[in-house]
Write a protein that binds this DNA or RNA. Structure first.
Length: 556
RNA sequence: GUCCCAGUAGCUCAGUUGGAUAGAGCAACGGCCUUCUAAGCCGUGGGUCACAGGUUCGAAUCCUGCCUGGGACACCA
């Protein structure tokens, strides 16, 4: 438990004791103590609504209850220097801030591990994300999914879960046949022959490029081969090269995966058939119109779904069921699927399938990534992979930069629409908050380079109580919040709290910086204490930036 | 028609478990570099929380209805 948590828990306990001591309610009837952090500093460090909650039990006016409670409160044990009753019956607590200075040595000692907690209790979670078909380059929407999934994994691990990032390669289905045909067409065109891409083919420039590379390498020799051999060649060549491009894009974006799981391998190991047979054996399927259906409607889906089409081939759904079954069999406690909004209709279906297999559907958590709208020159850019007009992830990285893009995607709740103004992001204007946060880090780094005279090997020898100014206390409090911000964001899968925290911390740092001089030869003890504070802030900034994979620059 | 997301300052968005006078950035306006990085700081103005009911000590937040915008609803993936 962190120092800040200890203080909070202790305060809760003391409030409960006071309620009992005052005879307001018997111990077993005391409601859970709710402590909130008031928005207005004038309302103290913590506030409780206990007096309002007790109106029914104690049968007294809330303000009267509050007065009685305060009379029986032990300030010393609760680390409280002042208590006020306000409004309809809020009790405001002002902390004795002496405890805060303990944070500095704790943070400096923890280093990159500051904020690490065990709140996830080692729960094993598989996070599947991106999983784009190898039929072209990654585009803007995939970039958002990549940023969200990767940050989620980093966050979960920091909070004491064991998160494993995984990418499902759709290298077995229909779309790969389309890829083969599209690549073949572009190849023939590159040779100057008549050919036209089918309506449902892939029209992207990446395929054109791939084809011209083939011509350079092989000339027209592939076209001389029999048709089925040609298609097999184009299929394998396409998947291999497009996947390596995808892997490079993701790596450059700061995203890494533990496992790249091939759909085709599910067939080869007989897992698709095994899952199918299990569903049949359990009586969860039936035949109709020459196709095999899964009874998903009974588990909350809109309608039953086809597993095996009337032509004998599988739908996309079937291997995906076996994939999810395999995930559970590998021992994960929870599965998180990060999916694009265009797949949200797919969720009840997959949950139903999990239930049909005998798993708890609540163990499958789906994080929906809402659409990204790109704005350029004030106009919305229409995106479509099929027509090849999408903005690619590579372009995003080249134009905007990885740091800004990662920060931008982490900044908003993943399940809301995102308007991405490309011009603004490119312009490097200070509207982009990533610079603000990085600047705070660079400022501290620059100071610390000149701080040799104030370095102390023994932190315990410093008089940290000198850090008693308002802005110093603000900074210390903010530093103390970090571990609970992480634990809470991880539990709620709410990554957007991390950039918000970083921005806040940076803001307090800038404010302090402008008001006070850190390196002051005329006051060595204070300067030493402030140098230690700066180190703690820098460490915390770095830990937070690591979570969203934003680079922490020594200078800007 | 059913489902998902959104509607809060001129713009982009926060808003914790329901809590006190609804916040931040940008834009606008006024100050601050002889001093550790001005990509910064300090200050001012700016609101029918889409709308209508309900729940209660208290609602931007929860419930119902309704309007508007975006998306999804295949024997596609």
């Amino acid at each position: 438990m962190t120092i800040a948590q200890q203080v909070k828990e202790q305060l809760k306990e003391e409030i409960k004791q006071a309620v009992v001591a005052a005879g307001l309610a018997p111990a077993e009837d005391v409601p859970d103590v709710v402590l909130e952090t008031p928005k207005d500093k004038a309302h103290g460090d913590f506030a409780t609504n206990m007096a309002m909650q007790l109106t029914r039990i104690a049968r007294m006016a809330p303000r009267k209850i509050a007065e009685t409670l305060v009379d029986h409160f032990d300030k010393e044990k609760g680390h409280i220097r002042k208590i006020e009753i306000a409004g309809p019956g809020f009790i405001n607590f002002f902390l004795d801030n002496r405890y805060l200075t303990d944070l500095i040595p704790a943070i400096i000692e923890a280093g990159d591990n500051y904020g690490q907690s065990q709140s996830g209790a080692g729960k094993k979670i598989l996070v599947e994300f991106v999983s784009a078909n190898p039929t072209g380059s990654l585009h803007l929407g995939h970039a958002r999914g990549a940023a969200v999934g990767d940050t989620l994994c980093r966050l979960l691990n920091k909070a004491g879960y064991q998160a494993s990032p995984e990418y499902y390669i759709n290298d077995g289905g229909n779309q790969i046949s389309n890829l083969a045909i599209s690549l073949q067409t572009r190849y023939l065109q590159a040779l100057g022959r008549e050919a036209e891409i089918p309506e449902n083919g892939y029209h992207g420039q990446d395929i054109v490029k791939l084809a011209s590379g083939l011509v350079e390498k092989y000339g027209d020799t592939i076209a001389e081969k029999p048709e089925d051999e040609q298609l097999r060649f184009f299929r394998n060549y396409g998947v291999e090269h497009l996947m390596s491009g995808i892997k490079k894009d993701l790596a450059d974006f700061g995203v890494s995966f533990d496992v790249w799981y091939s759909e085709r391998s599910l067939y080869e190991t007989g897992k698709v058939e095994a899952a199918l047979n299990l569903l049949k054996d359990k009586g969860e399927t039936y035949e109709k119109d020459n196709a095999l259906w899964l009874k998903t409607e009974q588990y909350g889906d809109d309608k039953d779904r086809v597993l095996v089409k009337s032509d004998g081939s599988y739908t996309y759904f079937t291997p995906d069921i076996s994939y999810h079954k395999d995930k559970f069999e590998r021992g994960f406690d929870e599965l998180i699927d990060v999916l694009g909004a265009d797949h949200h209709g797919y969720v009840p279906r997959m949950k139903a399938a999990m239930q049909a297999l005998g798993y708890n559907p609540d163990q499958l958590i789906v994080q929906i990534i809402q659409l990204v709208n790109l704005f350029k020159d004030g106009e919305k850019v229409k995106m479509s992979k099929r027509t090849g007009k999408a903005v690619t992830m590579r372009e995003l990285m080249d134009d905007v930069g990885v740091d800004a893009a990662r920060y931008f995607f982490a900044m908003r709740s993943s399940d809301t629409h995102l308007d991405f103004d490309l011009d603004l992001a490119i312009s490097h204007s200070n509207e982009n908050p990533v610079y603000y946060v990085q600047y705070a880090y660079a400022r501290i780094s620059s100071m610390l380079k000149r701080a040799n005279d104030f370095e102390t090997a023994d932190l315990a020898a410093l008089d940290l109580t000198l850090l008693s100014g308002e802005k110093e206390i603000d900074l210390l409090k903010k530093l103390g919040e970090f571990p609970s911000v992480i634990a809470e964001s991880a539990e709620k899968l709410a990554i957007q709290h991390i950039p918000a925290y970083l921005f806040d911390l940076a803001s307090k740092l800038h404010s302090f910086y402008n008001a006070e001089k850190v390196l002051d030869e005329t006051n060595v003890p204070l300067s030493q204490a402030r140098v230690a504070l700066m180190k703690a802030v820098r460490t915390t900034l770095k830990c937070g930036m690591d979570l969203i994979a934003v680079h922490a620059p020594e200078k800007m």
